[in-house]
Design a protein around this nucleic acid. Structure first.
Lengths: 385, 385
DNA sequence: TTGTACGCGTTATCAC
DNA sequence: GTGATAACGCGTACAA
């Protein structure tokens, strides 16, 4: 294997300058004890020979490898690009690179990548929601990394006592606002297309809505919660199931935006207008929720900020060193309601007796909430050739 | 800096087994000359101590670093996730990891990342369209890498004699099919919202359409080509400009799908129905082109396959070694027309005399084209919490 | 079959 | 201020 030198080395510089290797090292690392003249000359030769420090030698010598492993299910899932961008922008500012890993929720891929991350002595690991729940072996590997003082940041899991940092989103206020929004529009029969079973975030997502509607004095009808999932197909099936009911809901809350889009597609394909006949609410606020027609009313998660917060927390942990307890450094962000076109006034007569749509009534705790749905301004930009 | 061992080393294994280090090395690398008994024992201890070879030591020793740099403008641009996934799936199968770099078309970021890639001795580089045109310094750096026998794969640039491989998409047949499609629908006045100026791919995209319509005996009216770009905003402005014309076009070809969405949004917001009043054609076939309403008729680029082809070509080059000429290994893929709902029959009376919409006429070379727009089946899946 | 010696490029700790 | 020496973990000649 005839290896070609991919870069000149310190030895090359030293030889060309007529100085010793560690003089060059001192210049590269801006250490004191070098005459200005020498420093200048070394710098010039470095420039000329296009010198680039060998990261492997550095890492081997004991320095951190400025590389962060990022494990997500798949970058083609519209939820993740924004998240990854948040991570990357912060990472770049601190001189870190990203090692991107798509595991497709497959244990073997995740384990392969965890091995890769370890083999490359990445300085840290950021992983998507649900990874700890996906397999005991994965959890074991991640905890082993943590025990070796590799900072770990996860999304949405806040089990106590774990040596990992979690980025949490408090959606309760936004969910309450969403419930209020639907009630204000006159909806009384409200269906839910549930997230997939078995994940912590799924359970939280449903219970947040149940709590919110209960708080507002209009508890959800459990019969209107149908099993679903996070893709469009699940949304379609869920809508079909809900609309087949004797007393079909006038509003549907979907597991996420994709499911909402699937639901809307099914409704439109089956003679229902959105929002005229049925209102639909999504979750996440992926970029296309705003572009979809009708644009989707949704519980907006600050995806970019979540990514940025994750990397920021990671850097802090890196700086703090292994002494710190590492747990309970969790970061909380807030979700917000984005009211758009997929929700509108309920035009059906309420089946139940009671207040009529539009009639003013007491608003429980409404003043506590981020009331004004701020429309996001960040744009989809620059699609290349 | 008290460095904690992130993994056990060969020395640890050797000590625990009571053998020498390179016996362990021989076992790890499956070399001959080790007794089955020893091999078994070493393997067991490796398992137990959770040994992971140190990639930095290996690379330093002279092995390749199984890591590929991928530079794209931004992963939040819906064009790129599919592309990156194609790269990654092939990379994983050959044991390579991806080093993801978003440069936002900014020279400094690209240069920083190129330095990072070089410092980490990545085995190869895959970069997005247009990178070589973006700055002379970037081009210099990339060519320097190539000269050091780091395989480079780019998209859409096939300058002769460059030591880089290009992944090319031949869109001519698909563009001809698109032209035929619009003419068949009866459109005669056809506007174009142009891609941004200055990129090779942009010029090609326009000239392909000009050639196609000329081939079919209906050359495009240059007055109907307005400046545009790759985002929705450009699409909106372009549509506005076109519809303000005295004799506005009945069909619009946008620079890409995002521009098409922008155009459609403007049209709908200004009293035109799509496709009833105006037909719109996109380019790229990003995942949401299929979901958008109306779904977008578009020249579909095989994004995933392009990524996969890029990584495949890279691996071949890696295997071939530096001896090969490296140029003219370009890979050609074909675009296809995806006819969807954003195009429909022209309902306006043709301003010019001539054939009437729907009337059968000679179809030039139509049989050469991929006639049946195969609808893609791959789905957007699994949006997580 | 197994052990010894050396070098990859870098940095840190020493003397000079 | 500058130059030699050791060490990081691994792989490969070579010798035993």
């Amino acid at each position: 294997m005839p290896k070609q030198p991919v870069s000149s080395t310190m030895a090359d510089i030293a030889r060309a300058c007529g100085v010793s290797i560690q003089t060059v090292s001192a210049v590269v690392n801006d250490r004191a004890g070098i005459s200005d003249e020498t420093r200048r000359r070394v710098r010039a030769v470095m420039q000329e020979l296009d010198y680039q420090p060998n990261q492997h030698a550095r890492t081997l010598r004991g320095y951190r490898n400025p590389m962060i492993g990022v494990i997500i299910p798949s970058i083609t899932n519209p939820f993740f690009p924004e998240l990854v961008r948040g991570v990357e922008d912060v990472a770049r500012r601190s001189g870190h690179g990203l090692f991107l890993c798509n595991d497709d929720y497959e244990e073997q891929k995740a384990l392969d990548y965890l091995g890769f991350i370890r083999a490359n002595h990445a300085s840290g690991l950021i992983a998507a929601p649900g990874i700890m729940e996906s397999s005991p072996e994965i959890e074991r590997q991640i905890l082993a990394l943590a025990r070796r003082n590799v900072p770990i940041v996860l999304f949405g899991e806040h089990r106590q006592g774990m040596p990992v940092t979690s980025i949490m989103v408090d959606a309760r206020a936004a969910v309450l606002a969403t419930a209020q929004h639907l009630l204000d529009l006159g909806h009384r029969r409200i269906g839910i297309i549930a997230p997939p079973e078995g994940m912590i975030v799924s359970r939280e997502r449903i219970s947040d809505f149940q709590t919110a509607f209960a708080t507002l004095g209009r508890p959800l009808d459990p019969a209107l919660i149908v099993p679903g999932g996070f893709d469009m197909e699940c949304g379609s099936r869920g809508a079909e199931q809900l609309m087949a009911m004797d007393d079909a809901p006038t509003a549907i809350i979907a597991a996420n935006d994709l499911a909402a889009m699937g639901a809307i597609a099914w409704l439109q394909g089956n003679g229902r207008r959105v929002p005229d006949d049925v209102s639909v609410v999504g979750y996440d606020d992926i970029p296309f929720a705003r572009v979809f027609q009708p644009s989707i009313t949704t519980v907006s998660q600050p995806l970019y900020d979540m990514g940025a917060a994750a990397m920021t927390a990671l850097i802090e942990q890196l700086a703090a060193g292994p002494s710190e307890p590492a747990s309970d450094r969790n970061v909380w962000l807030a979700a917000t309601l984005m009211a758009r076109q997929s929700t509108g006034p309920c035009r059906q007569q309420p089946a139940e007796t009671g207040q009529r749509p539009g009639k003013k009534r007491k608003t429980a705790r409404i003043e506590e909430m981020p009331e004004t749905p701020r429309e996001e301004t960040r744009d989809l930009e620059d699609n290349p050739p």
